[in-house]
Design a protein around this nucleic acid. Structure first.
Lengths: 344, 344
DNA sequence: CTGAAAGCGCTTACAG
DNA sequence: CTGAAAGCGCTTACAG
């Protein structure tokens, strides 16, 4: 019922091979034939069957995004959607379709990726997160499938990845607070099994070291990417005898939790506590007070990931080019950190 | 190089047909053969080629989501991601893959949908928005392609859709304010070409009418789903000689703009102005003051859309079942509207 | 319960 | 510049 290459061929009085060549802009086809065939295609409303094409060409022009498993962290919706927009935009530009998938757990994730890749449904995969020891990454790496990580892998440092320099970003955030005269600076971290948590912690520690500032274990708190974590961290900090006057927070969402808690307890930001966080999601600007935050270029991360992966697919995954792309970050200073401490 | 049905057949000493039947759990296959073939499949690491299967079966087990064209409305990221989560979850459960696409404009959107559907790459489409006169909807409807709209179509009321009862939701929001004694109530609307804007405006007007309250054209302002719109509407309202004491706002994001403006001008919420808005995105709870909002069940909208579309695809799109699904809404009252006006 | 054969809609050497 | 033929990896009547 659907019109095929044969129908076009018959009506145009040529062979199916010729129609196929017209379709792929084969150079050795007469301009005359090409024009005629194209006309007939329009006339008949011909659309090439993508599945048939991909069956014979052994390439799908599709890549797959693995969504992190759960919706636990509702806020991260902003982050992931922005990433997806970047990915989709660039992929479309390069003629690739995007499949989006998720699994309820790591085992399902591996199965899903395996089905899609081995079943020749997609040419490669983008992973939106980097866990410490991820079976999905292991599977992809061991089977030689093209993939790119947003973030980085400690086990497979040579895998394709698009990331920020999180150590430097955190260093910058901390230095910013130090430059305002703060000497007791705390850090609210994320889940310890995420590479990003550790990188940012490291940057914070480097900055303190370089400035010869005191570092105390009780000034470092781990949590989730949830506002509850921020809330808890805040109450912990504020009860400390010699509490920090400023903190670096792993994520804007967590920082909101801190802000809410401080507000409830009638503390003032930035007077009682200065804050800098990461991601610079749009509401960072809208909170009271507006949040200083490191813009990590989320859209750019996605956009670049798409580009790098498709490049790898088309170059047959050779290792000639840059394996690791760093997206620049930028500190956006707002009211939450605009308070200088006078030195004693 | 990849292991095919033939390799399995040879090694198992059966015909390819038999392997295929084992794969699809054909009833008339001996349990013995089935077991053996499955073993060989495992052993060889066989994965069915999805493209080949779909070429012959003429079904793709995939559906496509059309993303709204631009990233202009950054905040709506939350909304769309939540929708996508719902869609992906239910689709996975039913064994469907999700393709995600977007176009730079309506023409590109139509081309994209056409390529995917006519190219037999997906079985159906989910549209995440409802514009007033959408060429994509027209294309899908006229070509008899399975699709479901999140929202509703005025031109094609019979098309599959999943929606809230926005008239009722807005009626409820307005009635809530009326029950607190407000008599001068404003409405901040969205883009007039979106069906949702008009439905909510209607609910607002119905509520005023039913309560015999005055309705004034200057109490109704149209805008975008952006906080700037809220900001502008706010300053317009507050300069009115006989200004509203409460407003219904089309969207939480717009409401944030209103809040920010009021805060800057030192007005108090809810004392100077009560607010109720729509969508109940997570930050609604976090603003100062927390925002009263109508929860529209975003995840549920997506989840149901997936289900309805796949049902339609599998039942060959017959018209036996419900064409229009309504997802229930719920007013969440928070501080932004907790202020009663004493009647004169 | 199982196999041989035809075919899904395309592409691509191989000839000419 | 163009065509005939083989084949991508599967499914599914048709026989038996």
């Amino acid at each position: 019922m659907a019109v095929t290459i044969k129908d076009v061929a018959k009506k145009a009085g040529v062979s199916p091979s010729t129609v196929s060549r017209v379709l792929s802009n084969h150079p050795r086809i007469s301009i005359e034939t090409s024009r005629k065939v194209k006309e007939i295609m329009d006339q008949l409303g011909y659309h090439p069957n993508i599945m048939a094409k991909s069956l014979v060409s052994k390439t799908t022009n599709s890549i797959c995004i693995m969504l992190p498993k759960s919706a636990e962290e509702l806020f991260s919706n902003y982050f992931f959607m922005e990433l997806i927009r970047g990915i989709v935009t660039q992929a479309s530009k390069l003629g690739y379709d995007i499949l989006i998938s998720s699994g309820a757990n790591e085992k399902e994730e591996v199965e899903c990726v395996s089905r899609l890749l081995n079943g020749r449904r997609v040419d490669g995969v983008i992973l939106l997160y980097s866990r410490k020891d991820d079976p999905v990454v292991r599977f992809l790496e061991e089977n030689g499938h093209p993939f790119v990580l947003i973030g980085r892998s400690e086990h497979y440092p040579e895998c394709l990845s698009v990331d920020n320099d999180n150590v430097q970003a955190s260093y910058d955030a901390t230095k910013h607070l130090i430059s305002l005269g703060h000497e007791r600076i705390g850090f609210v971290s994320g889940p310890p099994d995420l590479v990003v948590s550790r990188d940012r912690l490291k940057g914070y520690m480097n900055a303190l070291n370089d400035s010869g500032l005191e570092m105390r274990p009780e000034w470092i708190v781990e949590g989730e990417f949830l506002q509850e974590s921020g809330y808890r961290a805040m109450s912990f900090f504020m009860n400390l005898p010699n509490r920090p006057t400023a903190i670096v927070v792993i994520d804007d969402v967590v920082a909101f939790g801190v802000l809410r808690g401080l507000h409830e307890l009638k503390y003032k930001v930035p007077e009682d506590l200065c804050l800098v966080s990461f991601n610079n999601i749009p509401i960072a600007e809208l909170s009271t007070p507006p949040l200083s935050s490191i813009d990590i270029g989320i859209y750019n991360l996605g956009y670049t990931a798409s580009q790098v992966l498709i490049q790898a697919i088309q170059n047959n995954n050779d290792k000639k080019y840059q394996r690791r792309q760093i997206i620049p970050h930028r500190l956006i200073v707002r009211d939450s950190s605009m308070y200088s401490v006078s030195k004693k």
